[in-house]
Structure formats: C-alpha cells, structure tokens
Amino acid sequence: MNVEEIFQVIVQHTREIIPELEEHAFRFNDQLKELGANSIDRAEIIALTMDSLSIQVPMLDLSGAQNMGELATLFHEKL
C-alpha cells in the first residue's frame, strides 16, 4: 500500500466521521482540525485508519503530522 492509498483510507474515515465533508476534494495539505474535526473526531479517524491498515501506532508517534499527507506518510513508514 502506497502513501496515496493510505491517504484515501484516511479520507474515507474522515468522511465517515464528518459526513459534511462528503463532497470535499481532499488534498495532502488539508488539516483535520481546519476541516472541523475536534480532538475526539481526530482520535476516531486515526483509530479507524489503524484498524483498516491492521497496524498499531502509538498516538505520540503521529503527533508530528502537520497535515493529512504527513499523517499518511507516517502510517506508511510504520507498515
């Protein structure tokens, strides 16, 4: 699975948690917080993504991600 594919998994779960983003054209530099995801929403998106990717990453290891693209890259490094 490449970074783009992981990004699409994150997008899928973001749309699940925030249905209002169904029509949003996601880009790598999108920030979940700016898109209206509060801290619980962000934790939910990350937990759902880890479940889909079957990987466990400590939340602390993901805290450096500044946007959704960086988040996808960090997940890719852990695969």
Binding site: A43, E44, A47, D51, Q56
Partner: peptide, 12 residues
C-alpha cells in the same frame, strides 16, 4: 478480538 482499535469515543 481487536481491543486496541476500540473507538476512542467509547471512552466518553
């Protein structure tokens, strides 16, 4: 079977 992935919102 996969408790580490439990939805964080359950905590609330």
């Amino acid at each position: 079977e996969k408790p580490v992935f439990i939805r964080p919102a359950y905590g609330i």
